[in-house]
């Protein structure tokens, strides 16, 4: 267990925000969920007792008749925001005193750093490059992610949960968000920051980063596992297309079954286009962890390999 290496990684000025993220994300997730569950319990009580619902819809104290139902932003909101601003400034000032900007030696175009890492907001994409080719990982998937995010307002047919935390009323959204963001995206960032070392090789925490390390990895395309050679282009392409097609079809059917059972309301409310989009996005999203497992666990390079693009 090389503590020195671990300390070096976690205290590198570049990585300090990600270390903070490791604590902040779980904390705020827990905080939000705690509030969601509390709200859910309140909703239950209020649904059972309509009279109570008229006055007890506020979180901290029941509403008393005679109070204003709206208050001015100034000063009541702003004083809270003012306090927040002071605290944030304080944190930033203290941070900047103790952590200097990581200035390194003058850039030498003839000498690249090893490892050469993207900033944290692109680390996820850089990690995805391990599993997909650059076209898919750098263009298609980010495009779909952004497109998907933009599509959410149009496929989200659940009107509840505006302005208050709730779990019971937004189960599907929350689960999708947790899996897609917290698990997939953040995990990719954490891998990119702490696990990937020189040569983008996998180093468990506590392993010394050694750019001389030799890793034997015979990654093969999926079609090679069943004997189709790379040179048999059409056969390979056909096989790959079949596999991918099968994944989408089977995955879609499975999603359909699961949504009908567990997200019935959504199923009922969405029209065909919305439903199809939801299923498509879900299947594509789960494609990433599946591909990761195939690659890391079974040394599968590409599921579908053609001279024009690979998945």
């Amino acid at each position: 267990m090389d503590w020195h290496q671990l300390i070096k990684i976690t205290t590198a000025p570049d990585n300090v925000p990600i270390v903070l993220m490791l604590f902040l994300m779980p904390f705020y997730t827990w905080y939000g969920l705690k509030q969601s569950f509390a709200n859910d319990r309140l909703i239950e009580r209020l649904e059972a007792d309509p009279e109570l619902a008229k006055t007890h819809h506020r979180k901290t104290q029941p509403f008393v008749k005679g109070w204003d139902s709206t208050v001015h932003v100034w000063p009541y909101l702003l004083k809270i925001e003012f306090l927040a601003m002071i605290i944030v400034t304080l944190i930033l000032v203290v941070w900047s005193i103790f952590l200097d900007a990581p200035l390194e030696e003058p850039a030498n175009p003839n000498l690249t750093m090893n490892p050469s890492k993207a900033p944290w907001y692109f680390l996820g994409l850089q990690e995805m490059l391990v599993y997909f080719d650059p076209w898919i990982a750098g263009v298609v998937l980010p495009g779909i992610i952004l497109g998907g995010l933009m599509a959410i307002p149009y496929i989200d047919v659940n009107p509840r949960g505006n302005g208050y935390y709730t779990y019971k009323q937004r189960k599907f959204s929350i689960w999708m968000f947790f899996i897609g963001f917290l698990v997939l995206w953040l995990v990719l960032i954490v891998i990119g920051t702490f696990i990937r070392g020189p040569g983008w090789m996998w180093f468990w925490p506590g392993e010394t980063w050694d750019h001389h390390r030799i890793v034997h990895a015979m990654n093969r395309n999926l079609h090679e596992f069943i004997g189709i050679k790379d040179s048999e282009v059409w056969k390979a392409a056909g096989f790959g297309a079949t596999v991918v097609g099968a994944y989408f079809v089977l995955g879609g059917l499975l999603c359909d079954r699961l949504f009908r059972k567990f997200a019935t309301e959504m199923f009922k409310k969405q029209n065909f286009a919305q439903y199809a989009t939801t299923i498509a996005l879900t299947v594509m999203m789960f494609g990433l962890p599946i591909k990761m497992i195939l690659r890391l666990g079974f040394n599968v390079k590409y599921v579908m390999a053609t001279p024009w693009f690979n998945i």
Binding site: I86, I87, L90, V94, I97
Partner: peptide, 12 residues
């Protein structure tokens, strides 16, 4: 917080 911020500023 303001007091702390003042301290931090002087610290800076």
């Amino acid at each position: 917080s303001t007091a702390l911020l003042m301290l931090a500023t002087f610290g800076a």
